[in-house]
Simulated assay, not measured.
Amino acid sequence: MGIRGSKLSQIIGVNKRLRSSTPVTTPRGYVPVCVGVDGDFRRFMVHTKLLGHQEFMELLYSSAEEYGFCNDGVLRIPYEAKDFEEYWMIKKSKPKVFKVKPI
């Protein structure tokens, strides 16, 4: 007898606070990627299926040469951001890539 745990959490609003304090920044199945050179960087979300694509793997190898294999934080690719956006978002419509607005 008494108030169940889920009912109690609804009354106090625990679930609402937990949900709002942990925002989802990266959708499931995507990897955040920062692309750019010479200070012109743009953030993209790249679907994990794209990581195995031959042309994308070449970009990853150039990234490893530039920054090394042990890189903390978001994946960085040394490539012109506008060219990346044109090629991967417009010409290659099947692989899922979308641009992220800066915070």
Results as ranks from 00 to 15, higher is better:
Trp88Val: 01
Arg19Cys: 01
Met1Ile: 11
Glu86Ile: 11
Ile90Tyr: 09
Glu58Asn: 13
Lys101Tyr: 12
Phe84Gly: 07
Gly36Glu: 00
Lys96Glu: 02
Leu50Met: 13
Arg43Asp: 02
Ile3Asn: 07
Gly73His: 09
Ser93Cys: 07
Glu65Gly: 14
Ser21Ala: 10
Ser20Ile: 05
Asn71Trp: 13
Val33Asp: 03
Lys82Gln: 13
Ile3Ala: 04
Gly29Trp: 03
Leu18Asp: 05
Asn15Glu: 07
Gly5Ser: 06
Val31Glu: 03
Ile103Val: 12
Met89Leu: 13
Val14Asn: 08
Gln54Pro: 15
Val35Pro: 12
Ile3Thr: 14
Leu59Gln: 12
Lys16Glu: 00
Thr48Ile: 12
Gly36Met: 00
Lys92Glu: 06
Ser20Asp: 05
Arg76Pro: 07
Arg19Glu: 01
Ile11Phe: 11
Pro23Asn: 02
Ile11Val: 13
Lys49His: 07
Cys34Ile: 10
Tyr67Glu: 15
Leu59Cys: 15
Gly5Thr: 14
Arg19Val: 03
Glu80Val: 08
Val24Pro: 01
Pro27Leu: 00
Lys7Cys: 02
Cys34Ser: 09
Leu59Ala: 11
Ala81Ser: 15
Lys7His: 12
Gly52Cys: 02
Val100Ile: 14
Asp38Ser: 15
Asp38His: 14
Lys91Val: 02
Pro102Ser: 07
Gly52Ala: 07
Thr22Asn: 05
Gly39Gln: 09
Ile90Pro: 03
Cys70Met: 11
Glu65Ala: 12
Val35Trp: 04
Leu59Trp: 14
Ser62Ile: 10
Lys94Gln: 12
Trp88Met: 00
Pro95Trp: 03
Lys49Ser: 05
Asp40Glu: 14
Ser63Gln: 08
Leu18Lys: 10
Asn15Ser: 05
Lys91Trp: 03
Tyr30Leu: 03
Lys49Thr: 11
Arg43Pro: 00
Thr25Glu: 07
Glu65Tyr: 13
Phe69Met: 11
Gly39Met: 10
Phe69Glu: 06
Arg17Leu: 02
Val24His: 01
Glu58Tyr: 13
Leu18Ser: 04
Ala64Arg: 14
Met1Ser: 15
Cys34Gln: 11
Pro32Phe: 01
Pro95Arg: 06
His53Gly: 00
Pro95Val: 01
Asp72Gly: 11
Ile3Pro: 06
Thr48Gly: 01
